[in-house]
């Protein structure tokens, strides 16, 4: 999107009135909530959020809700199917004249990585292939954080989690959910992070202007699960972008475009050192092979982008 097309030309254009209510039981410093409240600024009350089981199940705890619009908690595997049912029902009601178009709702799935990368993939794939008009928000804190940060399909290599506590950490690789979405040829897909609110706002704006399946995949620095001081959430988020660990990009019209390419990438170690889950790479002794593997992975990615 060119500068002229967006309402968000500079950070001064970001909303000053925030629409998501406070008072939720998310952890202090939650990077997922940071991203969600920024997204919600553009969603507002004409939205129905279908939630998949995860940390944010607890956004609404009877009788407290932070939403101006509507919310339906489904289950871990099938929030996109809930979105299908709700969207279809709204369309039916509008078509039958039983619902004035101004009372229609935008249908949104809210899910953590545990569902998005694993249990919910089948339902997500089905909703995309059916061309469902919905926004799919993932807060990716790279583990089953709500149950105490066990590793998930989104956990990065070598991270310590509650189920990869010893030795070299998680032996697997983080799955490329953005690529999985792109392989479905959706209407829109983007990676975002709460620490880059202008980039995020433009992508939300873009997504909301398009009909069809749309992904907003937000890396969600997690003080509790990643083991860092809550005040460093934004710093770590920015480092994820500056080191090239979390590429900010979007897919539309069949093309992937990087929206924020670091001119000179900071060393990956700067990112890894901030988090307790990677401390074993540096203490008690430096794990050169694991660090080199991290660097190589990030380097290879950007080499493919820059060629």
């Amino acid at each position: 999107m060119s500068e002229q097309e967006t309402r968000y030309r500079s950070t001064r254009d970001l909303p000053s009135l925030h629409l998501l209510g406070t008072g939720t039981p998310m952890c202090a410093g939650c990077g997922g909530l940071e991203a969600l409240h920024q997204i919600y600024d553009q969603l507002g009350e004409r939205s129905l959020i279908l939630n998949a089981a995860g940390c944010m199940t607890l956004l609404a705890v009877y009788p407290y809700t932070p939403f101006r619009g509507s919310w339906l908690y489904t289950a871990m595997a099938s929030a996109p199917a809930g979105a299908q049912g709700a969207r279809d029902a709204l369309d039916i009601l509008v078509a039958q004249g039983r619902l004035p178009p101004e009372e229609d709702l935008r249908v949104v799935v809210l899910t953590g990585d545990g569902s998005a990368y694993g249990m919910g993939l089948s339902a997500t794939s089905g909703a995309i292939e059916r061309g469902l008009d919905f926004l799919y928000i993932v807060y990716d804190n790279e583990g089953y954080a709500n149950t105490g940060q066990q590793y998930s399909g989104a956990t990065p290599h070598a991270a310590l989690t509650a189920t990869s506590r010893l030795g070299a950490g998680f032996p697997g690789e983080k799955k490329d959910l953005f690529a999985i979405w792109v392989a479905h040829r959706p209407a829109y897909a983007a990676t975002v992070i709460g620490a880059e609110p202008l980039d995020l706002a433009r992508k939300v704006e873009q997504a909301l202007a398009i009909r069809g399946p749309k992904l907003l995949l937000a890396l969600a620095p997690c003080p509790t699960g990643w083991d860092f001081d809550p005040q460093r959430t934004v710093e770590i988020g920015r480092l994820a972008v500056q080191t090239g660990v979390w590429p900010l990009k979007e897919y539309r019209d069949g093309q992937v475009v990087h929206t924020k390419v670091p001119r000179e990438r900071k060393p990956v170690e700067d990112y890894l050192r901030t988090q307790g889950r990677f401390r074993h790479l540096f203490e008690p002794e430096r794990q050169d092979a694991l660090i080199a593997a991290w660097k190589a992975r990030v380097g290879t990615y950007w080499a493919s982008v820059e060629t």
Binding site: L48, L50, L72, T74, A75, A77, S78, A79, P80, A81, G82, A83, Q84, G85, A86, D88, A89, L90, D91, I92, L93, R98, L99, S122, A123, S125, G126, R130
Partner: peptide, 26 residues
């Protein structure tokens, strides 16, 4: 009526419940 084939019965029952919760006969 509108008929949509979901990708599983788990999804089917979710969609059914969500549609009923939105106010149509399912």
């Amino acid at each position: 009526a509108r008929l949509v084939t979901l990708e599983s019965e788990h999804s089917m029952i979710t969609a059914a419940g969500a549609a009923a919760a939105t106010g149509v006969r399912v």
